[in-house]
Computed example of a mutant assay.
Amino acid sequence: MKAQTDITSIGKKVLLQEAEAIRGVAEAIGQTGDFQDCVRTILGLRGRVVVTGIGKSAHIAGKMVATLNSTGTPALFMHAADAIHGDLGMIQPEDFVICISKSGDTPEIKVLVPLLRRKGVPMAALVSNRESYLAVQADFILHAPVDREACPHNLAPTTSTTAALALGDALAVSLLESRGFGPQDFAHLHPGGTLGKKLYLKVGDLSRQNQAPQVTADALLRDVILEISGKRLGATAVLDADGALLGIVTDGDLRRMLTNFAPERLGQVRATDIMTPRPVTIEVEEFAAEALARMQARNITQLVVTEHNRFQGFIHLHDLLREGLV
């Protein structure tokens, strides 16, 4: 077994070699207009992008399809071997095909390409070899030049698959930005999990599940305590006679009050005497993730929720914890 220092060196060597390959792919994008023309053609599609490959390239194709779909470009995966056994039927006249192959000269690719050409759909070749059979037959060449694999025997697909993966990401992001695909679009396609919740869950979705503790400015201490205890949010809003927000009283304000008022005066204490004025607020239509950011920035556990500056309720850190946003 190799020494620990040797293992570290091997790991670093692989990463640096693959990073260098990606730099080469970046330079290749600007050498011809194929990448730009490919993006423009896909932007004008009425159909889908069908991505195909065999072996490790098939895995890269599957990942590319997932990235395209999640960023607003409808895509399908077609395994190159299955294509000649019926899957070729998934390609429709308005589609676009991307075929991934390092060499561009494998037997399966040479069988598949003529069948794709008969379909009459535009085709891009994501290849390392610009002179390969696949590249020559394609309408667009997405060039991912790779001198050798990170495998010491130059056999296992490593550097080549990394380069192809990175070029696929470049294609997807170029399409995303060209379409003006934004966070709201992303949210519609990612409604599940924590990521989805950060993108679509609004403050009002959570605050409406809570009670809305509130007292008037002249409410006596006893009423303030009962409102806080009864609504179980650890705070209450203080409103004026017109319902405008003046401040909040929290559990912490009640504790601090005990050091500021003599026991004999407690019966005369009113909400305005102990409230925190100008509390931190957030509008109902803002994202819940923004509520979390404000709480963390100010080291507090709840925010007053407003709608057009009118009191609506509270959102608490526990609400965000329950939704998995923390």
Rank of each mutant, 00 (worst) to 15 (best):
T236C: 15
D223L: 02
A80W: 04
Q137H: 13
L321P: 02
A66T: 15
T194V: 15
G196K: 08
L292S: 10
L126H: 14
S174Q: 05
T8W: 06
V51E: 00
T159P: 01
I100E: 08
A288G: 13
C151A: 07
A138C: 14
E286V: 04
V326G: 09
E283N: 09
Q209S: 08
F314N: 11
A21W: 03
G193N: 07
A19S: 15
T52A: 11
R232P: 07
K63E: 12
V224H: 06
G120Y: 09
R208V: 08
A297V: 03
N210F: 12
L76H: 11
S101K: 00
K202F: 06
Q92L: 15
G53F: 01
L320C: 04
D253R: 08
Q184W: 06
H85K: 08
L189H: 06
E131Y: 05
M90C: 12
V97I: 12
L233I: 14
A124K: 14
V39L: 08
L258M: 15
I282F: 02
V249G: 06
L16W: 10
R270E: 03
F96M: 04
P183H: 01
E149Y: 09
A150D: 04
V173Y: 03
K2D: 04
A26H: 08
P191V: 09
A75Q: 07
I300K: 11
L220Q: 10
E323G: 09
G168A: 11
H153E: 02
M64V: 09
M295V: 06
I42G: 01
P93F: 11
G62H: 04
A244C: 07
H59L: 06
A212S: 13
L88F: 15
